[in-house]
Amino acid sequence: MNEGTVQAAGCVLWRRSPFDDAVEICLVHRPKYDDWSHPKGKLKRGEDPLAAAIREVLEETGHHCTPGAPLPTMYYVAHGRPKRVLYWAAEATDGTFAPSNEVDRIVWLPPMAAGNRLTQPRDRHLIAALLESLHHTQ
């Protein structure tokens, strides 16, 4: 891996709808970039990627989660630097969102609506990967 590559991790956070038990996906809104994305963030020095992903979910959404299947790794350039983001499926357990400077809103949406809300089209295939992983664990 290129030494200049930014290392990050995140989760596609999901829950069962309290209304009909269907899958809902959590997206976060970052006012700095005015974008909608899956919760993710940079690894701290020496931090395990899965631990970082769980930490980022809690920091950005206020929710604890139970990690599940690994999802596809994303590679792209952000702010002129290559970036690698490792993702996992993660089921939300308990928690409450509190707005911050980093994330001012979250939404829980059905998969298709979540895909349409995501700012980066590259993030959409993570939803399909999540649904596939859930299908195999049912």
Results as ranks from 00 to 15, higher is better:
Gly115Ser: 10
His64Asn: 05
Pro72Ser: 10
Val6Ala: 08
Ala9Thr: 06
Ala78Tyr: 12
Thr5Tyr: 02
Pro72Asn: 09
Asn101His: 11
Leu71Thr: 05
Ser100Trp: 09
Ile127Asp: 06
Leu71Phe: 04
Pro49Phe: 03
Ile54Cys: 14
Lys44Gln: 08
Cys26Leu: 08
Asp20Arg: 08
Ala22Leu: 05
Asp48Gly: 09
Thr93Tyr: 01
Ala52Asn: 11
Cys65Ile: 01
Gln7His: 13
Ile25Gln: 01
Arg81Pro: 00
Asp35Pro: 00
His125Val: 01
Glu56Pro: 00
Thr61Gly: 05
Thr137Phe: 00
Asn2Pro: 14
Gly10Ala: 09
Pro31Thr: 04
Ala114Ser: 10
Leu118His: 02
His63Cys: 02
Lys44Asn: 10
Thr96Cys: 01
Cys26Phe: 03
Cys11Ser: 13
Leu130Arg: 12
Pro121Thr: 08
Ala128Cys: 04
Val57Tyr: 03
Ser17Pro: 03
Gly4Pro: 00
Glu132Gln: 13
Glu47Gln: 15
Cys11Gly: 02
Trp36Lys: 10
His125Cys: 06
Arg45Thr: 12
Leu118Tyr: 01
Gly41Lys: 04
Glu60Ser: 03
Trp108Pro: 12
Leu130Ala: 11
Pro99Asp: 12
Asp34Ile: 05
Leu43Lys: 10
Ala22Gln: 15
Lys44Gly: 01
Gln120Lys: 13
Leu50Gln: 13
Thr66Val: 13
Thr66Asn: 06
Trp88Gly: 07
Leu131Tyr: 08
Val28Gly: 00
Ser17Glu: 05
Leu134Phe: 03
Asp123His: 07
Leu131Gln: 11
Ala9Lys: 10
Thr61Gln: 04
Val12Cys: 12
Thr5Met: 14
Ala22Met: 02
Ala78Gly: 00
Val103Ser: 08
Ile25Leu: 15
His38Leu: 04
Gly62Asp: 09
Leu131Met: 15
Arg124Asp: 07
His79Ile: 09
Thr61Ile: 03
